[in-house]
């Protein structure tokens, strides 16, 4: 019973952690789905959004603004920063590269990563900034059945709820709105989309803006968990196996991939780790991703690409 309780606790904790990875992975999926670009800068965007939010929040609170007013104004400020970033990326990075191949666009996002990381720390600081938007204590469930109960962290549950709302909202955006359909058309073929009158500059601005806002949401949760600091950019590496498993073009895939990675790595660390020295969860996620690649190269929910030769 104790072992089962431990298994259940690690499984639930892992699933919820996986949802937090999905929050970051969603930003990657959005840009890839809409523009065919693998955006290496997504982690840096989470950092930028988090720093803009927490620094403005601190400033507003220090100047006597009520906490909730400061949060709203801080979110608006961070949203504006992400909009400016989206415009700058479109204007100076991607715009000049329209119709170039995917590898060129990918390389350009690597450059954008370093610029965003450096600029955000230069402007907002490189310290660790506490952010307390969600509760971080825990529930202890089923205490009568398991000694000590099953621990469930409230922050993880909040992350799960936010991810659910985001997925629903993004699904509606892509399937039901004119802009969403235009985004999908651009992803299929830049030139063809332009030929039917879709303004590609505008579309790329919109998609980077939406990805920036998703990064802001991820920053609120991860910032509460870790404090806003440079290490948030490492979440991009946690999101990569999630994308490989779920598929680069599927929003539900990002969630399912996150659940698989979260549960898989936590169970491996908890039960396999002690027998082989521990510290395995970081690479175990990539083992899972490799296993999926062998069976379904496009990921569990990715679109199968069929090309005529």
């Amino acid at each position: 019973m104790v072992l089962f309780g431990q298994f259940l606790e690690i499984l639930i904790g892992g699933l919820l952690s996986g949802v937090l990875y999905s929050l970051v992975a969603l930003g990657f999926v959005l840009i890839f789905k809409a523009s065919g670009v693998f955006n290496f800068a997504q982690g840096a965007m989470v950092l930028l959004a988090g720093l803009a939010l927490v620094r403005s929040l601190d400033l507003l609170v220090a100047n006597g603004f009520p906490f909730w007013t400061a949060i709203i104004l801080g979110l608006v400020f961070a949203g504006i920063i992400m909009a400016v970033t989206a415009w700058l990326v479109e204007r100076f990075v991607l715009g000049p590269l329209v119709n170039q191949d995917g590898l060129t666009l990918f390389m350009s996002t690597i450059g954008a990563t370093f610029v965003l990381e450096g600029a955000s720390q230069m402007i907002f600081g490189s310290d660790v900034y506490p952010l307390r938007l969600f509760p971080t204590d825990a529930w202890f469930l089923f205490e009568s059945s398991f000694p000590g109960g099953i621990l469930v962290n409230k922050l993880d549950v909040w992350g799960g709820l936010i991810a659910g709302i985001l997925v629903a909202g993004l699904a509606i955006f892509f399937q039901r709105t004119k802009t969403g359909r235009a985004l999908r058309a651009v992803a299929d073929d830049h030139a063809a989309a332009q030929s039917v009158g879709i303004p590609i500059s505008w579309i790329w601005f919109v998609v980077w803006l939406v990805a920036g806002l998703v990064a802001l949401v991820a920053a609120t949760v991860w910032g509460t968990k870790l404090g806003v600091q440079f290490s948030i950019t490492f979440l991009a590496l946690k999101a990569l196996p999630v994308l490989i498993i779920g598929g680069f073009t599927s929003i539900p895939g990002a969630i399912v991939g996150g659940l698989i990675v979260g549960a898989g790595e936590k169970l491996a660390e908890g039960f396999l780790g002690p027998h082989i020295g521990g510290g395995i969860e970081y690479w175990f996620a990539y083992v899972l991703a490799l296993a999926v690649l062998l069976v379904r190269p496009q990921g569990l929910f990715g679109e199968r690409i069929i090309e005529r030769i």
């Binding site: 431990q6 606790e9 690690i10 904790g13 892992g14 952690s17 621990l151 870790l226 290490s231 948030i232 490492f234 979440l235 946690k238 790595e265 936590k266 660390e269 908890g270 780790g273 969860e281």
Partner: peptide, 8 residues
């Protein structure tokens, strides 16, 4: 950044 398994 991720230590949940260790602390559980």
């Amino acid at each position: 950044v991720e230590q949940k398994s260790q602390w559980l």
